[in-house]
């Protein structure tokens, strides 16, 4: 079983010690209630993914241009030569 710090790292979050303590305490509090889920027999059931009884919502294959590159990059924190820019990423 992983602990809070490990799950935080998976989500690219670094917590301070006090954040870790507080979140751990709240997680424990929440999880106390989770145990009750096991008491329900769901072996014959399919999971519910959406409440809608709707199938096959599909879009015609037509291309449109919604944004110019200029507009797209307007709010980019760092951009270079038409690209979004980040520090060197290892393969």
């Amino acid at each position: 079983m992983s602990n809070i710090t490990e799950y935080a790292a998976i989500e690219r979050l670094a917590l301070t010690d006090s954040e870790t303590d507080l979140i751990s305490a709240k997680a424990n509090y929440l999880e106390e209630g989770f145990a009750a889920l096991a008491s329900v027999d769901t072996s014959a059931l399919a999971p519910l993914v959406t409440v809608l009884a709707v199938e096959s919502v599909l879009r015609e294959d037509v291309s449109t241009k919604m944004l110019s590159r200029e507009d797209l990059l307007a709010t980019a924190p760092e951009q270079y030569d038409g690209y979004f820019q980040v520090p060197k990423t290892l393969e």
Binding site: I4, Y7, R12, L13, L15, E19, A27
Partner: peptide
């Protein structure tokens, strides 16, 4: 890590961590 950790609030962090869990 720094962008997310600096900008997300505590309740959001709790939710996100519980989501990963």
């Amino acid at each position: 890590v720094n962008s997310r950790s600096e900008a997300l609030g505590l309740d959001a962090k709790l939710t996100i961590i519980m989501g990963a869990k």
